[in-house]
């Protein structure tokens, strides 16, 4: 019985140690929540108070029929939406292959509050959790 108690003691010590570390980690992550998110949605972007042109990321879907290329084809202007708010994005450079209407994208750059334009320096495409062959995707689209 004494032996059993010893093991129980060790177990409870480990459990207590593990729980306290988990709790500490939880609070740290909770406090850093704002910093850990990879991008802000357009709604979050407008909520932010800061005036200075911070280097940030904004993510959402590319709004339908919002993509406009400049005449020389280098500059592109499109809108990122979270289905509540939209933000206008200007970008000059190479877009990822997955960039298209209704695709999840993340733009890195600075937000100009007065002009309400997001000047992107980099655009990343987001992939979703759905994996399927092209034929099945086509069939699903036709069903809609």
């Amino acid at each position: 019985m004494v032996l059993k108690n010893k093991k129980l003691k060790r177990f409870s010590f480990l459990l207590a140690a593990f729980l306290s570390i988990a709790l500490a980690t939880f609070f740290v992550l909770k406090a850093l929540d704002e910093k850990i998110v990879f991008f802000y949605t357009p709604s979050k972007l407008f909520e932010k108070e800061e005036d200075k042109m911070q280097y940030i990321r904004v993510g959402g879907l590319v709004k339908e029929k919002s993509i406009n290329f400049s005449d020389d084809g280098l500059k592109v202007n499109f809108m990122i939406t979270d289905n509540k708010n939209t933000v206008n994005v200007m970008f000059e450079g190479i877009l990822p292959d997955l960039f298209r209407e209704n695709q999840g994208v993340v733009a890195e750059g600075r937000f100009n509050k007065e002009k309400k334009i997001f000047m992107a320096e980099k655009v990343l495409a987001k992939h979703d959790e759905n994996y399927m062959p092209p034929e099945i995707h086509k069939a699903l689209e036709e069903e809609k």
């Binding site: 998110v37 991008f39 992939h127 994996y131 062959p133």
Partner: peptide, 24 residues
């Protein structure tokens, strides 16, 4: 799931079943 990330969410081990085609 907890934060928005560039990496996509889980496709196989998730509550609503795999969102990956059976052939894959």
């Amino acid at each position: 799931d907890w934060w928005n990330t560039l990496h996509q969410p889980a496709s196989v081990i998730r509550a609503s079943g795999p969102s990956i085609n059976i052939e894959m």
